[in-house]
Computed example of a mutant assay.
Amino acid sequence: MLRYDELEGDDPLAGAGTVAILPAGVDPSAFSGVRLLPEGIYLCCSRWGMPYDPQGAREFIGHAKSHGLRVLDDVCDLCLMDTVSYNEEHRVDFCCLQAPVAL
């Protein structure tokens, strides 16, 4: 999870953290430091890259803004396939960027 407010600064990974997807029925209050993602409309984009490289998230935000969307909160950069997807063409992870937006 990349902090939206930090992505344009000198330390874009400041405050970044891990994302866990809990199965239905699991009470998140049983865990400490849990933040639930807000309901709403999310912009999503798949990409080849590394989830800890903020450049992808920066481009994602820029693309959203150029299309009149306002990013409302932090950007989730979720790795969908790691080294199992590497081949001669791709030597990086296959990821999905997600962020809540206002239309």
Rank of each mutant, 00 (worst) to 15 (best):
E8H: 09
R91K: 14
P28W: 02
P28F: 02
F94G: 12
S32K: 15
Y52S: 12
P51E: 12
L78G: 00
M81N: 10
F60M: 05
L80M: 12
D93H: 13
R91N: 14
P100C: 14
H67W: 08
N87T: 05
G62Y: 05
N87L: 07
L36K: 00
L103N: 07
A99C: 10
V101K: 08
R35K: 10
I41R: 04
L69G: 03
Q98G: 09
K65Y: 01
A99T: 06
G15W: 02
E6D: 13
A99M: 09
K65S: 11
T83I: 08
G25C: 07
L2N: 03
H63D: 09
V92S: 12
R3K: 15
L43F: 06
R58F: 06
Y4C: 12
D10Y: 07
P54H: 01
R91I: 06
P28L: 03
R35H: 08
G9I: 00
R47P: 00
G33V: 10
W48L: 13
D27P: 00
P100N: 11
L7K: 03
I61N: 09
P51G: 05
F94S: 14
D27W: 04
A14D: 13
C96W: 07
S85R: 03
F31A: 10
E88S: 14
Q98L: 15
G40L: 02
H67G: 04
P23I: 01
P12K: 08
Q98C: 13
E88D: 14
H67Q: 13
L97P: 04
L37T: 07
A24H: 03
N87V: 05
E6H: 04
S66A: 15
D77S: 07
G62F: 06
P54L: 03
M50C: 09
S46T: 09
R3L: 10
L103W: 15
E59Q: 10
L37S: 05
D10L: 12
R58S: 01
R70T: 14
